[in-house]
């Protein structure tokens, strides 16, 4: 009997200490990165309850185990056996049924929390998202804005309609807590209500190839007023841009994600940089050299495998694109401006 009392007390102490330890590490009341969405509330709440139960279950197994190791150790030279206990059916039933209750409770809570996370606001703001190796593109359909940075208003539900043009990616902003895969050939939905103004990052969470680690784009949550100002400014820019060939070309490259692989400032990414590219003399992987002109650029866009720049993989990792002549002319006009 005395053993049980001691173990009981130790279990309570260990439970409390374990939970406090987790809390100090920032892992109990919240899952560390600051919570920045309405969806994270029920998730963090469920998480906290789980940590309490886990601390208790840990203590319930760990403490009697360690206690036995100390209290029921075989003394040196002792050859006796332990007590002959084979089992106890009511005890076995108890520790089958009680965990079953816990399972039912958490099944209910899990359902509740999922329901909270998926709560739909019919007025939600729609933004289209495209994932591709190795960047994200965001389109605000009402305003014709296309960017690589996601701007969101605080306290309003947003629904991201997401798809991928190549492999599977996964949209995850740790501060929002939720993630959703982005799958080629389908449109997946990500509903989030940002609550905290700040700068975050969307981090691709599904392995998508060589530069997967770097598939991170900025996510900026603003107050509704600042957000509106940003939208107005971008919409204006977009309208202006649409009137010049270069501007339209730039839009085309953003929309098609070209800049995920081609930098504009000279940094080498998956593909050759576009900085100063027009008129440059470039070496090909068969050793020949050529001067980059319109014909070369058009060929490279429509048929990336035709010629490959020295140092880049063959066959090319770039997909073949289809553009009208006018679009090609606009893209080239834009590329020419990159000096």
């Amino acid at each position: 009997m005395q053993h049980f009392v001691i173990v009981g007390i130790l279990v309570i102490i260990t439970t409390i200490l374990t939970y406090l330890g987790l809390d100090v590490a920032g892992l109990a009341k919240q899952q560390h990165p600051i919570a920045a969405s309405a969806q994270s509330v029920s998730i963090d709440q469920l998480w906290q309850w789980e940590m309490i139960v886990i601390s208790f279950l840990f203590a319930v197994i760990f403490v009697p185990m360690m206690y036995s190791l100390v209290a029921f150790r075989q003394k040196k030279g002792e050859m006796k056996d332990g007590e002959h206990m084979e089992g106890n059916t009511s005890l076995e039933i108890a520790w089958t049924v009680i965990p079953l209750f816990l399972v039912v409770i958490f099944a209910y809570l899990g359902g509740w929390s999922l329901g909270e996370v998926r709560r739909v606001d019919p007025q939600a703001l729609v933004i289209n998202v495209k994932g591709q190796q190795f960047t994200w593109t965001f389109e605000y359909p009402e305003y014709g804005i296309i960017t690589n940075e996601l701007h969101l208003p605080a306290d309003r539900q947003v629904v991201l309609k997401m798809t991928s043009i190549d492999v599977i990616h996964s949209f995850w902003v740790p501060e929002f807590r939720i993630k959703q895969d982005v799958v080629p050939g389908r449109i997946t939905e990500y509903r989030v209500t940002p609550t905290l103004v700040g700068n975050y990052k969307v981090r691709c969470a599904e392995l998508c190839g060589t530069s997967h680690a770097y598939m991170e784009n900025a996510v900026i949550v603003n107050t509704q007023a600042d957000y509106d100002a940003w939208i107005a400014e971008q919409a204006e820019l977009a309208k202006l841009a649409a009137q010049t060939p270069e501007g339209q070309g730039r839009l085309l490259t953003v929309r098609n994600g070209c800049t995920g692989c081609h930098s504009l400032d000279g940094t080498p990414l998956t593909g050759p940089t576009w900085f100063n590219i027009f008129g440059k003399t470039e070496e090909m992987n068969d050793g020949s050299t050529l001067v980059i002109d319109e014909a070369y650029l058009i060929e490279s866009i429509l048929n990336p495998n035709a010629k490959i720049v020295a140092g880049f993989p063959s066959p090319s990792v770039m997909p073949a694109f289809v553009f009208s002549d006018e679009e090609l002319a606009n893209i080239i006009a834009y590329i020419k401006t990159l000096k």
Partner: peptide, 24 residues
């Protein structure tokens, strides 16, 4: 979640096996 039930049975039974043994 249901898998944790039979898994729990194992843990509890192991602990009960240790209880009042002569452990080396």
């Amino acid at each position: 979640l249901l898998v944790s039930v039979p898994t729990g049975v194992k843990f509890f039974s192991w602990v009960a096996t240790l209880w009042k043994g002569k452990i080396s």
